[in-house]
């Protein structure tokens, strides 16, 4: 099989994460959560190391990663866009906003643009229902977004 390469500091951090969960198989999901915090996503190499440290098969790790939509194997864009699809946002037309973003930024849900500028994800209720529909780019929150506004908002980036 192939050899896996990872930068030293990242590898160390990852091994530390596994250790902090006592390298317990049962903690696989928590370990992956932490790992995604560190790396922003879960590339194959990271999953190989986690599998090795927790003594489970890589197939098992990938099984978990592919099961939960929270985990991603693609790096997030510089400006990760999240669209809330909670009930309030949905009722107020979040889906149309989402379609517009897909068109303007040329990106699908769960994907990143080829230039790495934007990535697109959907969220369930961010707790800002008063502002519905809500859109987040990075840490910045946009409220009461109308589909026509999308172009303007994205132009800021």
């Amino acid at each position: 099989m192939a050899n896996i390469k990872l930068a030293e500091d990242k590898l160390k951090a990852l091994i530390e994460v596994c250790k902090s969960f006592n390298n317990e198989k049962g903690e696989l999901i928590n370990v992956l959560h932490k790992a995604q915090e560190i790396f922003g996503y879960l590339p194959a190499e990271v999953q190989e190391v986690v599998a090795h440290e927790l003594n489970v098969s890589v197939a098992t790790v990938y099984g978990v990663v592919s099961f939960y939509s929270f985990f991603t194997m693609k790096p997030k864009g510089e400006n990760p866009i999240s669209v809330c699809l909670g009930t309030a946002c949905y009722v107020r037309g979040a889906e149309k906003v989402l379609e517009e973003i897909k068109k303007v930024a040329k990106v699908e849900v769960g994907e990143t643009t080829p230039d790495g500028k934007f990535s697109l994800a959907c969220l369930r209720c961010v707790g800002a229902c008063g502002l519905a529909p809500v859109l987040m780019i990075g840490q910045k929150v946009y409220g009461r977004v109308a589909p026509e506004k999308v172009n303007e908002i994205l132009a800021e980036y």
Binding site: V58, A59, Y62, S66, F67
Partner: peptide, 17 residues
């Protein structure tokens, strides 16, 4: 350990990593 269930719902299948 070459195989595992992956994805979910109707796209769920068993596959290698």
């Amino acid at each position: 350990g070459a195989l595992s269930a992956i994805n979910r719902g109707f796209t769920a299948v068993v596959a290698p990593a």
